[in-house]
Amino acid sequence: MDHDEATAMFSAYCDQQLGAVERAALDEHLKTCLVCRRELQRFQQTVESVGRLHPMSAPPDFVAGVRDRIHKRSHGRFFRPGQRGRMPFEVVSLVTLGVVLAVYLVVQLLHPQLRLP
């Protein structure tokens, strides 16, 4: 393996995407190649330094800002009136099924002689 072949594997090495054979070949090369060892170290430091950038947070009024834009552009018609607090259909279905099942089980417990036709 030469320097170029080794360098081409650095990204996959950092992301742990190298296969066992390729990994062993690179490790073998690194044992004897000081230049590639140093370059790999710098490559890893580069990747790590990007990953450690301070995570920027959206400004505090961000959500309100987006909502205002949508209201303004749609002249207040984007959101369906009366949607606030409305339960989605899927939730209503699940809750109804749960209630029916619970009633059925209670009836079965209290009157075991009753059976569905």
Binding site: P55, A58, F62, V63, R67, R80, Q83, R84, R86, P88
Partner: peptide, 19 residues
């Protein structure tokens, strides 16, 4: 379903990642 509360929930969840 254009539920305004869902909108606020979604923006709140992803605003920092996207920003």
């Amino acid at each position: 379903a254009r539920d305004e509360e869902a909108f606020e929930e979604m923006v709140g969840l992803y605003q920092n990642k996207i920003y």
